[in-house]
Structure formats: structure tokens, C-alpha cells
Design a protein around this nucleic acid. Sequence first.
DNA 1: ACGGTGACGCTCA
DNA 2: TTGAGCGCCACCG
Length: 103
Amino acid sequence: MKKISAFRQKVYKFTQLIPKGRVSTYKELALAIGDKNLARAVGNALNANPFAPTVPCHRVVSSRGTIGGYAYGENKKRVILKKEGVTCQEGRIKDFSTKVYKF
DNA sequence: ACGGTGACGCTCA
DNA sequence: TTGAGCGCCACCG
């Protein structure tokens, strides 16, 4: 059994709330948690995310619409997003502003 | 206890 | 416009 900080649990919880075909940003996620400057910590939490398939961390991208990163490989992230209905071009989300999901 | 690192974000030049 | 630097928080050794 792993003991996870409340902060991380929040991150995973909100990440799971992201609907299919939509994406969110580290900043929005951090904002939803309550701190807008936690973007880094959020990325850290997702990176260590012990519930990888349970938490769709691939739906979380940087505030600019860039892929950002992915523990399984950024390449994989792009493919998954494409399958979800999100088009990626040059590592950026197409119509990103329109696909960003806000809590 | 401390310092360094990291899937970021914003401001300034 | 593009490029570089600084600041933010949380986690690991």
C-alpha cells in the first residue's frame, strides 16, 4: 500500500475528470487544486502517477498547448490524443484553446 | 535537515 | 517576434 500526499491525490482526481476528446493544462489543473503556481508540482505528481492507466495523464498538456512530456514517451502521448479525437501538429494541439477543459 | 531536480509559467531584453 | 532568465511548489537522495 502506498501513502500518497493529499496534493497528489487531488491532481489524479482532477485529471480523471478530464473528459475524452478534451485536454487540460498543468496550470488549469493546479488552479483547480487551489494554487496557480503549482504547475511544476503537478507535472511531478503526474510523472510519479502510480495509477498511470487509471489517470489519463496524457490528456494533460502545457498551457501553451504543447505536449509537454509523458512518462511513456511524448510520441505515445500524441498518438493517444489523436485517438481521443485531439489532433496534434508539430507537438502542439490543434485548436488547443477550444479543446482545453476547465474545471 | 538540506540541496538538487523536474512532464511549467511568466516576464524581460 | 524570438530567446533567455527567474520564480513557483513538491518530491527524492
